[in-house]
Each structure stands twice: as structure tokens, then as C-alpha cells.
Design a protein around this nucleic acid. Structure first.
Lengths: 213, 213
DNA sequence: TTGTGGCTCGGACTTTTGGCGGAGAGGGAA
DNA sequence: TTCCCTCTCCGCCAAAAGTCCGAGCCACAA
């Protein structure tokens, strides 16, 4: 009985590549391909695969949310997060979302096959780099960013688009003084010293996209 | 006589995927793989392939510089830029660097084979999306960002890390007034109104990476 | 030689930013 | 009801940011 695999990646090149060389291993069988998170959840329900190889960055619904839903619906299906870049928080996020593994796309094929088999058996698999990052994160005693209130998040979003306090006030229909209070609280909570640092941090966290406006 | 292809991509999954399904076409033959720009240039000299499939984002040396060098050294070798995302300036940059085509990684395999054969014959190939972008760019009459001087670029780099004028001055060993002059000129040249906007723009342009410091 | 442009500063000035303390209104939880 | 949090705003103030003008130095090109 071979291990049944569902691929979820928005790039057809990656999907075809994975399908090809996973097909070379007689123990592995690719039973479906999804090109976004919504498709991934739907196909996972239909096919009930043993393992899902899930790209984190996808249109429609990202891999993290898809992972959460799949894990909730199909407790016997393991998810391995597969991504091209090693992003700091993403490793944590993936594990938190229920992924049993986190692998980089430049993983060699033998190692990938090994990881899939381990995942199907319920064993945790991480790229050495990802594992190192995870340890580093844990050691560094979590800066523990205090949660921003909805209003503060809104202000930060505008701030991270390069707006001045006066413009933010106009956009939100409130006084400039109020905006300054919010900004002050935001800087304090985020542990940064200037609005510029806050804006960069917001981009880094993915609150705003780099190519927005 | 089949078309000889060199792959250049830092992700082994992508390389293996491409190698697999390009191998299915009897007219195409993958003769080498490079995992960064330096390797790509070296292998191109050794192998003199007909076509290089070049990822834009790679460590060591990026695909654009590698393309320039290969085109300079081997005029008969055509380069097709292959990237996962459609980045505004990157399309232009790739063409400027000497690439004959610009394809997205989610291109279907048949179209990819067709594009390679067209490139080998010296015909220009662009993803429909890339072509559209190119036309849009040309229409939009280039905002024409005035070029920054080396010193200004250096200041912008530090500024985009969230440093204050005083810190930049200390780092560069110059006076704070001088930094303010530079910043003022930078804002003017970039057409933005604040250092925060300049920092965001710098990230967008790729001058600094989002996960640096 | 005579520019020209880049880098460096200065003075003087306005605007923006950010901190600190206080405070009222509203909502929700104990 | 009594907190506690959020959102709103005030005044006051110091620091940072940014503009405008002028100026010296240096290297490099015409």
C-alpha cells in the first residue's frame, strides 16, 4: 500500500516536478494537485490523502489557513509545509497551524521522499535550517510583541503606507492628537523607536504588502 | 540535433522538475544545472548551451548579472528569464540584461517547450502577463527616478533599516547636518515626502531586504 | 584652465514627531 | 455597580525631521 500524496502549489512547474520524481518511488503516489488553498481543502476532503505537500504562499487561501482546515477536517492526514524561503515567523506559524514538517524547496529529492514517509508515520520532519531557526527562536525568549488593538492596527496599516499623522487623522476622521496617541502606543508595544521602524516592521510581518501603493 | 539547455535555479526541486519534463521532449536536452549565478556563467562557458533557463533571484550572483555576462561571452546562447513572480521592473531589467524571453514558473510545460524552441531560433518569447506588463510600463512614460549618488544610496540603505539621522551620521562618520542634506536630496529625487515613504520605497525596489535586521 | 558634480558643513527656520500627564465617554466583564 | 480597556482629545514640551540658502573642498572632464 503506497502513501497517497496531495500536492498544493500555485506553480505548475513545481507541481509537475514533484509529481515526476515522487512517482519514481514505488512507495509514493501523487493522487491530486491543487493550485490554491481552497482547492487544497476541497481535494483533501475528496481524496483523504496520507500526506499533503503544502506551499505556504498561495493565492485564494494561503497554505497556513488551508493547513488548519485540513487538520481540523482530517486528523489522519499529515501536512508538510514546503516553501522556497526560510521565513522567520513562518516556521512557527506552520507548526502552529498543524503542519508536521517544514521543508525548503531546495531539499534534495531523496531527503524529500524520506520526509514524506516519516510524516505519513506521524514523525516530525524539519529542514536542518528550519530546525536551527526554530531553536534560535525559542532560545531568544520571544520578544512577545504586545497585541495591538484594532484601531492601532488600522493606524499602523496607514502609517506603513507612508502617511503622516495629519493624513491618517483625515482618513480615519479623528483628530491628529488622537493619531499621535495611537502611534505612541504602537511604537511602545512594538518596541521600536520611530514610525519608520514601525512601518518596516509592519511590512516584515506582512501587515501590508510591499507592492501596495 | 537537439537543443542543449542549461538550467540555473537555486531550488533543486525546480531544477529536477524542469529536467524531468524537458527530457520528455526528444528535441530538448538538459546538459547542465547551476545553483547560482557564478556557476551559471562558468557552466555556460564550458558547455556553450543553446538556451539557458535562468532564475532571476539566486544567491552568489543574481540572474540579471549572470545573464549580462553570458550574453557578453556567448552571443549564440540565448537566455530565458524564469521567475516565480511578476515583478514590475524585473521584466524590463531582464530584457535589458539581454534575456530573449521572460516566463513565469507557472507556465504550462507545453508552452515552456515551445518557448525554448522559439528562443533557440532567436525569437522573443514573453509570458502573456509579462508582455502586458511591458506594454503598460511603456505607456506609463516612466516616472524616471533621478539616479541617486553612491553616498545617497548608502544613506538610503541605512535609513531603510530604520536608523535616525544621528545614527546614520555616526555610522558614516559625518555630521548630522550632512545626513539631513543627503536625506533631503533623496526625498526630492525619489519624489516622496518623508523618510518613512523613502524607506518603504527602498524595500519595494529591493535595495534592502525585508528580513534584514 | 574652467567648469561640473559630489561630498561636506553651517545658520536659520518651520513642521513633524513623539513623550508625558490628564481626562471624559462608552462597553464589557467580574 | 465597580473596574478595566479602548477610543477619543487636551496642553505642554523636547527632539527630530526637513527646507532653504550659502559655502568650501576635491576629483574629473571638457
Amino acid at each position: 500500500m503506497s502513501i497517497r500524496i496531495l500536492l498544493a502549489d500555485d506553480h505548475s512547474v513545481v507541481r509537475q516536478g514533484l509529481r515526476m520524481f515522487l512517482g519514481l518511488d514505488p512507495d509514493l503516489e501523487v493522487v491530486g494537485e491543487a493550485r490554491n488553498g481552497v482547492e487544497a481543502v476541497r481535494l483533501a476532503q475528496e481524496l483523504a490523502p496520507d500526506v499533503v505537500l503544502m506551499d505556504i504562499l498561495m493565492p485564494e487561501m494561503d497554505g497556513l489557513e488551508a493547513t488548519r482546515q485540513i487538520r481540523a477536517l482530517l486528523p489522519d492526514t499529515e501536512v508538510i509545509a514546503l516553501t522556497s524561503v526560510l521565513e522567520n515567523e513562518k516556521v512557527f506559524d506552520a507548526i502552529r497551524s498543524g503542519a508536521i514538517g517544514y521543508l525548503l524547496k531546495d531539499t534534495e529529492s531523496e531527503e524529500l521522499c524520506r520526509a514524506i514517509k516519516a510524516a505519513a508515520a506521524g514523525q516530525v520532519q524539519l529542514s536542518p535550517q528550519a530546525a536551527a531557526q526554530l531553536l534560535r527562536q525559542e532560545r531568544s525568549s520571544e520578544p512577545e510583541i504586545e497585541a495591538l488593538t484594532p484601531r492601532e492596527t488600522e493606524v499602523l496599516r496607514l502609517l506603513a503606507h507612508g502617511l503622516a499623522n495629519k493624513e491618517i487623522a483625515r482618513d480615519l476622521g479623528i483628530g491628529e492628537k488622537t493619531v499621535k496617541t495611537h502611534v505612541s502606543n504602537i511604537l511602545s508595544k512594538m518596541g521600536v523607536l520611530s514610525r519608520t521602524q514601525a512601518a518596516l516592521q509592519a511590512v516584515k510581518m506582512g501587515l501590508v504588502s510591499v507592492d501596495e501603493s
